[in-house]
Design a protein around this nucleic acid. Structure first.
Lengths: 346, 346
DNA sequence: GCCATCACTGACAGCGCTGTCAATCCAAAG
DNA sequence: CTTTGGATTGACAGCGCTGTCAGTGATGGC
């Protein structure tokens, strides 16, 4: 029993074994395995049968070495369990697998001092055909230079920071913010305050931009925003700070997690939601509909965003290059019970 | 600029290039790269300098092919963004990377009809030195047979379902349940109801077992439990079902997410928490301290659990086999505001 | 009915590295 | 000064597959 852990790998059958068993050449087996043309139906079947009988599994390392394609995609993702990034990881993995690739994952953690460049080097060394970036790119990570020749997909909001060849897909953060702010303004609020996410993330910057631009377009005053780090704890702390600075009647919070903390701070200060203060979140997390006060929020299809990005990336890998390189997917407002008209007409 | 996407990979330098540049043999470079012995200090330095000057990066595929070790670990993880599994993924990735391995991730989704055996086959084909399983193993997945000779780590609660050679680490679900139930009993509740997680998961089964055994040990009656699927939505629905069946004064819910839904259902039915009903969750999610009613819950160090498991797995891979193969890590109760004595003494 | 054409098929040379084993060198021992 | 043994170094043969190119029949045109 204890031998189970020893490498009893049953002397894996190789392509040569299959060839011998099927009575054909190595190359013909290779053709069948890779679904190439120039193999007659009869031979193809014989080989296929041999493959099944022997339980043949192609050796990825040998394949990669000979073909210089690993059929593996590397992903560098910030380490969070928040709804958005989580859904993105999910969508990426699924799409990658469906395209016949596998996923090599590296997560970055802010506190870890583990820089992106190093993570990239490691992935490239292991061998990847493409690279996906789903993590903050700010002044500190100036543009992830030279991903060493592999196509790069950033799941992010397209902006000037991205290089020319890069594929960038994201959700329409700016429009989401616009919808949130307009919803609050249309309820009668004079203006809307903003509790932003970690500004290292483009998503946080773009949500803040959308908020600001919408207020300006509406001729509303623009209160000083505060920024957290996406956690409920930071939402709690930053909302307290905001309350020290003024008395909002409406707040657009950059994600649902922080909104939970923010609402907690509002209630602890004696304010009710939405009675005294309306709150809109972002992401539509799983639990947001079931909070004490079900949360009005912006829903984005992160899974689909990821999927589209992966398709685009694989097109670039195999040399087909038609679709636009940078685009965003639409989002929409989900109205629940955390928003209402201001108590006395604003 | 558009050439960025073409594979302009700068004709990667090979070990041969380094050898030539350093004036030594291929094998000597190999020794330096792999930190083997039998290389004099002077030669080692020369080679190291050559490596840096040329920016040499070992080719993973070639290495894997020649050595039959990929330095890659495969992980099959259920696709959820819940706090526990999420933290486990995080911990695994970090530990794997710190040990110099890379992580190939496959996520399974219940609705997808994508079975574990197939995922394993794919990972083995790509080449992995070890396999990690973090996903439900129930009657439907009878024991993940024959991982083809690679050491297997299950992050799960050790039980009979696991095979002899398997490494199993988990958190002490049973003890967590015990602490939750005892806390509620000690507040004066006559008994404690249970809203369980998805029974496909060992965690759900063990939490239910701990709950039942603790009640029995205390001589309390054991109400019929209900089970959800870890989501807030299922917590909401199943709590309504529980309320149809009886009038609990205390409920132990199998995770925080479901607890949020459960509390929502309680409040919608006119009950207050903890006034009418006390609720204990499990996992201590990020937002649990900031809910309208901060949640009493069980905290487990999932990251550490994952880390310990990975260390153990790598020991098995390199053939060192000392530490016990199956163990659990302790958990502890975090008391917040969702629990209180029953309204009229039970 | 003969040659160009095309669909198949296979031989062979590596891909970049590691494992094995033989060769070499140096210092200490005899 | 020669012998012995350990430490260092290198030559060479693959790992399992793909890419290239040559070879083989069969098909079709004139």
């Amino acid at each position: 029993m204890e031998s189970v852990s020893r490498a009893v790998r049953p002397a894996a059958v190789s392509m040569t074994d299959v060839a011998r068993h099927a009575g054909v050449s190595l190359k013909t087996v290779s053709r069948v395995v890779n679904a190439e043309q120039h193999v007659s139906g009869a031979v193809r079947e014989t080989v296929q049968r041999a493959i099944e009988e022997l339980g043949y599994q192609p050796n990825g390392a040998a394949r990669a070495l000979a073909s210089k394609r690993t059929r593996r995609i590397g992903m560098i993702a910030a380490s969070t369990s928040f709804s958005g990034p989580s859904a993105i990881l999910d969508g990426v993995e699924k799409a990658v697998r469906q395209q016949g690739y596998s996923l090599a994952l590296v997560r970055t953690q802010p506190d870890e001092g583990y820089e992106v460049q190093h993570a990239i080097a490691q992935l490239i060394g292991q061998g990847i055909d493409g690279l996906i970036l789903s993590q903050p790119v700010g002044p500190d990570n100036p543009g992830i230079q030279g991903p060493a020749g592999v196509p790069l997909l950033s799941i992010d909001y397209p902006d000037a920071r991205h290089s020319a060849g890069e594929i960038v897909v994201g959700t329409d953060e700016v429009d989401g913010a616009r919808q949130a702010v307009n919803h609050l303004l249309s309820l009668g609020h004079r203006t809307v305050w903003h509790l932003g996410g970690d500004p290292a993330w483009a998503a946080a910057r773009q949500r803040a931009r959308g908020w600001r631009e919408t207020l300006e377009a509406a001729g509303a005053s623009v209160p000083e925003p505060v920024f957290g780090d996406w956690t409920a704890a930071s939402g709690f702390a930053q909302m307290q700070k905001m309350l020290d600075a003024g008395s909002p009647t409406a707040v657009f919070v950059a994600n649902d997690q922080m909104a939970i903390g923010a609402i907690h701070a509002l209630e602890r200060s004696g304010r009710s939601v939405p009675g005294d203060v309306s709150v809109v979140g972002f992401d539509d997390a799983d639990e947001s509909a079931f909070l004490h006060t079900p949360l009005t929020t912006i829903r984005a299809d992160f899974q689909d965003t990821a999927r589209q990005g992966v398709f685009r990336l694989i097109e670039a890998i195999i040399g087909r290059d038609e679709a636009p390189r940078q685009f965003t997917l639409p989002v929409h407002l989900v109205i629940r019970e955390s928003t209402a008209p201001p108590r006395n007409g604003g």
